[in-house]
Design a protein around this nucleic acid. Structure first.
Length: 576
DNA sequence: GCCGTTTTCGGCCCGACTGTTTTCAGTCG
C-alpha cells in the first residue's frame, strides 16, 4: 500500500509549488492536492490498479490525468519522482511535519528555511525557544507562541497514527500472511484491536509451526521499510507508514493467553493478573498456570476470563475503566455492532463538497448494506464547501425524490442538510426550508476561538430552535490537528437531552467526535446518538466501523443509537 | 495539471480571520 506515501509526496509537491506561485501554477497546486486526496482515500492499492490496468487505470481516477499518472508510474517503477527530487533540492525541508503545525503553511515553512535555515520541527523548536522567530519580519511574538504550542501538541502525539490510516495497512499485511499458507491463524492485537483512535505500533499474532519461514515472509512484505529485530517467535519491522510492527508466532496452547496479553491495555491486564494471583494462578503471555505450575487449557481468550470467574468482554472495553468489575458481576453490556447500523444520517454529494453524485452515494450505501441514509450538504455560509441556499436545496430535493422513486424501496434517501450554526447561534437556512427536511444535522464550522460561555450559548440556542435532529461532530476536534473548541459539554448534553437532539459520533478517522470518553460522559444523560460517516465520497461509507468502534469504546448499546432503527422507526424518531 | 452539454482552450469554490502590518500576506476551511 504505497497510497499514503504517494499522496504525501503529491501534497509536498503542491506545497513547494505554491511558494513561487504564478497564475498558472496556482492550479497546478490544486491539481496535485486533488490527486493526493483521491489517492489517500482510495480503498484499493494504487500499485494494484497500475499492475492490472496500467496508466489507463490510473487516469480513470478523479483528478488524475496523463501527467500525474506518469508521475505515479514513475514512483511505482523507480520508487522516486524526479519532479519531487528537484524540488527537494531547492527546499530540503520536512514540509509535511512543518506544515502539520497549526499556523504554518508552505510559505511560512519556506520563509523560515530561507531566513533561519529551519528544515524540521527540531530546528523550528530551537529557533522559537530562542525567540529568533518573533524577531523576523512577517512573524511576531504571537506567531512564536502559536508555533511553540503547536510543536508541544505534535510531541505529545509523537509516533501515533490515526487508526483509519494504520488499520488498512495492518489488514493488508494480515491478508498476505494468511495467503502465504504458512500460518494457521493471524490476528491483530494491541491498541488497534481495541480500536483506539490512534495507534503507536501494530501488533500481529500468528499461529504457526514454521516460525522462521513466517518471519522471512513477513520481513519481505512490501509495506516493510526496515528490520529492527528478527527471530523465530518475535520480529519487529519498521513500516513505510512510519510505525513499527511486531509479529509474534505463538504456539497453539498459548494463543488465547497471548491474545489476551497483547491486546491489553496494560492497566486492564494488571487488574486481570491481580485477580489471577488472588485465585492462586499465574497469568502471562504463555498461559494461565495453576498452583503447581501446570498449564490450564485456555485456547481462547474467553477461557481465561472464564477460569478467572469473569464474563468475556469486547476488546474495546479493556481500558481499566470499570470493565473488570462489571465482568466479575457478569454485567457486561451487549455493545452496538457494525451490523446493527441500518442507516447513515450525515453524508455529502457533489452539490456541496462531496466527490460523488447522490445516485452514486445511494448505490454505495446499498452496497454497504444500509436501508437508508440522509443526504446532508453544507449550507450557504460555508462558501468554501460550496454551501447551498434554500433554492439550491429545493432543486436538489426534486432530484432526490426522483431517485427515491427509481430506487423502488431498495434504499431510502432522506432529505437533509448539515446546516451551519452561525456566530450568533442562528441557523444558516430559513425555518420553512429546514422544516421541509427529513433530517437536519447542525454543526459549527466557523469562529472556533470564542469564549467557552459564548460558544456554549451559541450551540444551545441552535439546539433549542426545535429544528435540529442531530448535532454533528460536537466538539470540533481533529485528532493530532486541532483541539476541540471551548464548550461546556455538560450544558450541551443537558440541552441535547431537553430538546431531543441526538449527538453525533462522527466516523471520520480524523474526527471520531464525540470521542470514547465523551460518549461515556454523555450517556449519563438521556440522549440518543447517531453514528454517522460524514461521507464525502462513496468509499467513506467504509468509515462506519471506526465510529462503531468508538461507540463501543464508550460502552454504547444498540438502543442508544438512533440509526440502528429500521426505516419506519427512524422516520418516527425524526418526527418527534 | 485536470477537465469537458462552455469540450482541446481556458476556466479551475474563495471569503474570513489572524497577526502582522499601516494595506496585506498567509492560513484555514
Amino acid at each position: 500500500m504505497d497510497n499514503k506515501l504517494i499522496a504525501d509526496i503529491f501534497n509536498d509537491i503542491a506545497a513547494m509549488l505554491s511558494v513561487d506561485e504564478t497564475p498558472s501554477s496556482r492550479f497546478e497546486v490544486r491539481a496535485y492536492q486533488k490527486a493526493a486526496l483521491t489517492i489517500a482515500t482510495l480503498q484499493e492499492d494504487i500499485g494494484d490498479i497500475y499492475r492490472k490496468e496500467g496508466k489507463e487505470g490510473l487516469m480513470k481516477l478523479p483528478g488524475i490525468g496523463k501527467g500525474l499518472a506518469e508521475r505515479i508510474e514513475e514512483y511505482i517503477k523507480t520508487g522516486k519522482i524526479r519532479r519531487y527530487e528537484e524540488l527537494r533540492k531547492r527546499y530540503p525541508i520536512d514540509m509535511k511535519a512543518l506544515t502539520s503545525i497549526e499556523g504554518i503553511g508552505a510559505k511560512k515553512a519556506i520563509a523560515l528555511y530561507k531566513k533561519l535555515g529551519i528544515k524540521d520541527v527540531a530546528s523550528l523548536k530551537k529557533a522559537a525557544e530562542s525567540h529568533k522567530i518573533g524577531a523576523l519580519s512577517g512573524f511576531g511574538g504571537k506567531s512564536e507562541g502559536l508555533i511553540l504550542r503547536g510543536i508541544q501538541r505534535l510531541e505529545t502525539n509523537k509516533g501515533r497514527l490515526l487508526l483509519g490510516d494504520a488499520l488498512p495497512v495492518a489488514e493488508s499485511m494480515v491478508g498476505k500472511l494468511i495467503g502465504s499458507g504458512l500460518v494457521v491463524k493471524v490476528v491483530i492485537a494491541g491498541s488497534m484491536r481495541r480500536m483506539r483512535e490512534t495507534v503507536g505500533d501494530i501488533d500481529i499474532l500468528a499461529l504457526s509451526d514454521k516460525g522462521n519461514e513466517v518471519m522471512d515472509f513477513f520481513t519481505k512484505l512490501p509495506d516493510v521499510s526496515g528490520i529492527v529485530v528478527k527471530g523465530p517467535t518475535k520480529t519487529t519491522v519498521s513500516l513505510k507508514i512510519g510505525l513499527n510492527c511486531d509479529l509474534r508466532v505463538i504456539a497453539p496452547e498459548s494463543f488465547g493467553a497471548a491474545l489476551q496479553y497483547f491486546t491489553g491495555s496494560k492497566d486492564h491486564n494488571v487488574q486481570v493478573r491481580t485477580i489471577a494471583v488472588r485465585m492462586g494462578y499465574k497469568l502471562n503471555e504463555y498461559g494461565l498456570f495453576g498452583r503447581k505450575g501446570q498449564l490450564m487449557p485456555t485456547k481462547e481468550e474467553k477461557d481465561i476470563y472464564g477460569r478467572l470467574g469473569m464474563q468475556y468482554m469486547p476488546p474495546e472495553m479493556r481500558e481499566a475503566r470499570g470493565e473488570v468489575k462489571l465482568a466479575q458481576e457478569h454485567k457486561i453490556p451487549r455493545l452496538v455492532e457494525l451490523g446493527d447500523i441500518r442507516g447513515d444520517m450525515h453524508t455529502h454529494t457533489l452539490e456541496s463538497d462531496g466527490a460523488d453524485s447522490i445516485e452514486e452515494m445511494a448505490d454505495a450505501a446499498m452496497k454497504a448494506d444500509l436501508d437508508y441514509f440522509a443526504t446532508t450538504n453544507h449550507t450557504k455560509s460555508l462558501g468554501i464547501a460550496n454551501g447551498m441556499d434554500e433554492r439550491g436545496f429545493a432543486k436538489f430535493f426534486k432530484r432526490v425524490d426522483k431517485l427515491n422513486d427509481s430506487l423502488d424501496g431498495k434504499i431510502r434517501v432522506l432529505k437533509g442538510a448539515e446546516v451551519d450554526i452561525l456566530k450568533d447561534g442562528s441557523l444558516d437556512l430559513d425555518r420553512e426550508c429546514l422544516k421541509s427536511m427529513d433530517c437536519v444535522v447542525a454543526a459549527v464550522h466557523s469562529y472556533f476561538r470564542m469564549e467557552e460561555s459564548e460558544m456554549t450559548k451559541r450551540v444551545c440556542k441552535a439546539l433549542e430552535s426545535g429544528l435540529v435532529h442531530i448535532f454533528a461532530h460536537p466538539t470540533g476536534r481533529e485528532i493530532n490537528v486541532r483541539e476541540q473548541y471551548p464548550i461546556d459539554l455538560e450544558k450541551l448534553f443537558v440541552a441535547a437531552e431537553r430538546n431531543k437532539v441526538a449527538l453525533e459520533i462522527n466516523s471520520f478517522p480524523i474526527r471520531l467526535d464525540l470521542s470514547d470518553t465523551n460518549i461515556m460522559r454523555a450517556s449519563k444523560y438521556k440522549v440518543k446518538f447517531a453514528i454517522d460517516t460524514d461521507a464525502h465520497r462513496t468509499s467513506h461509507f467504509g468509515f462506519l466501523r471506526y465510529g462503531v468502534g468508538t461507540a463501543r469504546r464508550g460502552w454504547l448499546e444498540k438502543g442508544r443509537v438512533m440509526n440502528t432503527l429500521p426505516l419506519s422507526g427512524i422516520m418516527k424518531e425524526l418526527e418527534k
